[in-house]
Design a protein around this nucleic acid. Structure first.
Lengths: 352, 352
DNA sequence: GACGATTTGTAGAACGTTCTCCATATAACG
DNA sequence: CGTTATATGGAGAACGTTCTACAAATCGTC
């Protein structure tokens, strides 16, 4: 006896392309032609078939489609679903896809390379039409092998030399520069970056790019050739502990640039608890301009990189690639500063 | 000429079950049997096939599997990806699924019934093995028709009388009661609820359930038979305006229960901006115990309903249903109160 | 050593599409 | 009217699995 024993009570007679064909009194091929609006269909035939489709409420099986042709599905891979920046990207993707006949299916890899690989493989095995990978961890060579099998657009993945797939990025180096420039403009000289302590941090990741931008801007501002970059672990318990230690350091810098709002907001919160005044004692600037940062309660200055727009652009690129483009594209968006109270006390006296 | 013209440059010779069979010197059926670990396979054969699979790095096509048998994929449908509660549910689902051979594919309906329907249909058409619907908008009868075609577990959908599908819920009525009881215990008598202004708010939705619980607890506390419930629109611009108006009402209540942290946090923020002190002028209690609520900066009391746990339970229920259970199950979790400064000033004087 | 029972492996028909030929029917043209 | 082009519809072979039926081999058992 196998474990896989299953009963099938519901002999749910599905409406297939054959049902439609019979009902309309035409061949299966004819129906298929109408569905794909292929060449060689008279108006009369089309009308008849369309009618039958309507009355039978026929939907082509995606599984069967995938087996033979295209499935009209695009796969989206997210590293993480907790970071509020990622949902923004999804919103952008869905926005562009909504009026089309494409649909998005999302996989979440939780930053595990193993799972990331298997999800990408699954999406290929489903014969999806294309993939949008948001901040993937896999090295470029691996992505290239996948890209042979399926059109791929990588978002938040800095590899402008990739020829097999497209990339869509905000200019993270520039974003970090803008942050530093803003801090400099406020007169701060003693600046540190709080970055992400990744294990396999590869150069293509947005975090590393921001570090590069940070270093360059600091140098350009004449603040030494190797400014301090502290790493915050992503795991929860140690994370707060490290931040607390940072805040109570007696050589704590006057201003800090965080790689993400996620960290910046936690930092703000801990600062308040520990009696470190922001921005009087410590100026903070984040990255992503998440909706939480915009709250009056939080009031965190941040670098805006419109995830929604990134999602839109990536989707359009993917569709154009699905439709035949083969030369790779590497698109850049320019981020911008959103100044708020965590940077410097402004004119409007919202009492915090 | 059709629009659908596509070139196929990559004749990427896929490793199929046939390749494996040839390589191992056995029949296709034999390989299939090993894959499904079905009855009637000798150890020798199994070893040979497993070897071949290994060396060829064979992965069965999900599309083809879907066409004939099961696809080992379960679909998850989210109304919304912005509400940080939803990602928690996903985390729970992924946690349970990770060690199994199942994978989750997520669709986001953005609360549009149209899109919700078409995503569910797609998932069925992909021959996914089961569906987890998180707070679906579709009426129960419609879900029942879908449930005939595919195992379904609905999360955050109060219909204990459904026989065709399972439901997994936190007891939202009880949650609201707990919130009111907490406010009563603090001595507040003048309590209002800020609920969600849904268009097609149906009785099965969590929001309506919380309203019911709110009403009952208020009555039980002797605070009138029809306590005030204000509706906050979900659309962004009007939303803040309505909240501001609420805050500046001169008959503003002493305490307020928000249907979601999402609203509660915005309210807290606007209150600060407008000089309404929390909790001295207004006590606030939210729902979901999101990570933002836990921030010292926000310090919002909230009802905890562990989305992660909900996701886990739902996934286990779904798997058991996929594996043959037919009687429907309706599972309840009991939410709990997380008390914080927005409710009443506590002993620990974190200066806010 | 004959005969049923059991174990092990295979052939081949689905599943629901797409899409490449073909076979007509009709139009155009000299 | 014959010939060629063009427009329209259909047959049927994939696609990569699963799974039922069946054949062959092995094992007891009397």
């Amino acid at each position: 006896m196998s474990i896989e024993e299953k009963q099938k009570p519901q002999r749910n007679d599905r409406v297939t392309i054959r049902t439609v064909a019979t009902h309309a009194g035409v061949s299966v091929a004819a129906v298929s032609k109408v569905m794909r609006n292929a060449y060689g269909v008279s108006d009369a035939l089309r009308a008849r078939v369309t009618d039958a489709i309507e009355t039978l409420a026929y939907r082509p099986s995606r599984a069967a489609r995938g087996l033979r042709g295209r499935s009209f599905t695009i796969g989206v891979l997210l590293i993480d679903i907790r970071n509020p920046f990622l949902p923004e990207v999804i919103a952008g993707v869905n926005g562009v896809l909504a009026p089309s006949h494409y649909q998005a299916m999302i996989g979440v890899s939780d930053a595990r390379v193993q799972l990331e690989t298997s999800l990408i493989e699954s999406m290929i095995d489903y014969k999806m039409d294309g993939l949008i990978l948001v901040a993937p961890r896999l090295p470029s060579e691996i992505l290239a092998t996948f890209a042979v099998q399926i059109p791929i657009v990588a978002v938040g993945y800095h590899d402008a030399s990739a020829t097999a797939f497209d990339t869509v990025n905000a200019d993270d180096q520039r974003g970090a520069e803008i942050a530093v420039e803003a801090l400099l403009a406020c007169g701060y000289r003693d600046i540190e970056m709080l970055s992400l302590g990744e294990r396999q941090g590869h150069a293509v990741s947005v975090v590393r790019q921001r570090e590069i931008g940070f270093r360059r801007a600091m140098q350009r501002g004449g603040l030494g050739s190797s400014p301090t970059i502290s790493k915050i672990p992503i795991a929860s318990p140690k994370r707060e502990e490290v931040m607390r230690r940072f805040l109570s350091r007696k050589d704590r810098p006057r201003a800090v640039f965080c790689w993400s709002d996620l960290d910046a907001i936690t930092l703000l919160s801990l600062a308040m608890e520990m009696g470190v005044r922001v921005p009087e004692d410590l100026a903070v600037i984040g990255y992503d301009n998440s909706s939480t940062a915009a709250l009056g309660l939080v009031n965190l200055a941040s670098i805006d990189q419109s995830g929604r727009e990134l999602g839109q652009v990536a989707t359009r690129a993917l569709i154009s690639r699905i439709e035949g483009r083969t030369a790779s594209e590497h698109i850049f968006q320019i981020p911008s500063l959103v100044s708020r109270n965590s940077l410097t006390r402004f004119g409007n006296s919202t009492d915090r």
